[in-house]
C-alpha cells in the first residue's frame, strides 16, 4: 500500500498541473477570440479578390496563352506540398491531424511515382515530417517570432512559391492547414494553390457588369494571381492560428477535468489509507492492552 506521504505528494503535484492547464485554457480562450477576429477581418479582402479573379479567370478559360499560374504547366509530375502547423505543442490533435493528412497524401503521390517536395511552416510539422521525409523537405518557414500574424508574415511564403514555380521547380502546389469551424472541430483542408482554382459560385456576382480593365485583362490577371497565392496562404495561416488556439483550449479543458478526476481518486485513496492506518494503530493498542 502506498504510504501517506507519497499520496500527499502526488495530490499536490496533480494540483499544480491542474493549475497550469487551467491557466493555459484561459490564455487559449483569450487568444482564440483574437485569432477569430483576425480571421473574420481578413474575409472581405479574400472574398473580393476571389470574386474579381474568378470572373477574370472564367473569361480566360479556353483562351490560349493564359498565365501559367492559372493554366498550370500541363504536367503534374512534381508536386509541392506545403504543410502549415503550429510552433508550439500541447494543442491536442491539431498538429497530428494535419501531419497525418499530409503524410497520407505524400505517400500516395510517391506511390504514383511523382516527385514530391515539401515546405513546412511551423516547427511542429517540420519535426514530425523530418523523420520520414527529411530528404525531400526543401524549405522551412519559422514562425516563432510572430506574435500576431500580419500579411507581411505570409507574403514571403507566397513569394517563395511563386519564385520556385516560375523557375520550373514544381507543377502543382497544395497547402495543408486546419480550417477553423468551432473550438471543438477543426477540419484539415488540402487547398490547391497552384494552378489556381476557383469556386464557381463566386463568379456570378461580377458576371453581369462589363468592366473597363486598366491595364488589360491579361496583365491584371498576371498581377493578381501571384498576390492571390500570398492572400490564400495568409488566410490559411489565420485559420490555422484560430484552429490551434481552439484545439488547445479544448485539450486543456479536458486536461483540467482529467486532473480533477485524478485528484478525487487520489484523495479517496488517501483518506482510506489514513483510516486504515488509524484502525491498525487502534488494533495494536487494544491487543496490547488485552495482553497485559
Amino acid at each position: 500500500m502506498a504510504n501517506l506521504k507519497d499520496l500527499r505528494n502526488r495530490i499536490t503535484s496533480v494540483q499544480s498541473t491542474q493549475k497550469i492547464t487551467k491557466a493555459m485554457k484561459m490564455v487559449a480562450a483569450a487568444k482564440l477570440r483574437r485569432a477569430q477576429e483576425s480571421a473574420e477581418a481578413a474575409r472581405p479582402y479574400a472574398e473580393r479578390m476571389e470574386a474579381v479573379l474568378s470572373s477574370l479567370a472564367s473569361s480566360m478559360v479556353g483562351a490560349e496563352g493564359g498565365p501559367k499560374l492559372l493554366a498550370g504547366t500541363g504536367s503534374d509530375q512534381v508536386q509541392m506540398v506545403v504543410v502549415a502547423t503550429s510552433e508550439r505543442g500541447l494543442c491536442g490533435g491539431f498538429n497530428t491531424n494535419i501531419v497525418k493528412a499530409a503524410r497520407i497524401k505524400i505517400r500516395a503521390l510517391l506511390a504514383e511515382g511523382k516527385t514530391v517536395k515539401i515546405v513546412t511552416v511551423g516547427k511542429k510539422g517540420a519535426s514530425a515530417l523530418s523523420r520520414e521525409f527529411g530528404s525531400i523537405t526543401v524549405k522551412h518557414f519559422d514562425m516563432s517570432h510572430v506574435k500576431r500574424l500580419v500579411f507581411t508574415d505570409a507574403s514571403p511564403i507566397g513569394d517563395y512559391l511563386i519564385a520556385s514555380y516560375e523557375a520550373g521547380e514544381f507543377d502543382v502546389c497544395s497547402l495543408f492547414f486546419a480550417k477553423f469551424q468551432s473550438a471543438l472541430t477543426q477540419i484539415v483542408t488540402d487547398l490547391q494553390l497552384i494552378p489556381a482554382t476557383f469556386d464557381a459560385d463566386n463568379t456570378a456576382d461580377l458576371g453581369g457588369a462589363s468592366y473597363d480593365y486598366e491595364p488589360d485583362e491579361n496583365e491584371i490577371l498576371e498581377d493578381l494571381l501571384p498576390r492571390n497565392v500570398a492572400v490564400q496562404t495568409f488566410r490559411a495561416l489565420l485559420e490555422n492560428a484560430a484552429s490551434e488556439q481552439g484545439s488547445r483550449m479544448t485539450a486543456m479543458d479536458s486536461a483540467t477535468r482529467n486532473a480533477g478526476d485524478m485528484i478525487d481518486a487520489l484523495r479517496t485513496t488517501y483518506n482510506r489509507t489514513r483510516q486504515a492506518v488509524i484502525t491498525n494503530e487502534l488494533i495494536e493498542i487494544i491487543s496490547g492492552a488485552e495482553a497485559l
Binding site: A209, Y211, D212, E214, P215, I220, D223, L224
Partner: peptide
Amino acid sequence: AVLKDHAPTVST
C-alpha cells in the same frame, strides 16, 4: 479620380 456613377473599372 472616382466620383459617383463612375464606369465599372478594374485597375491594378
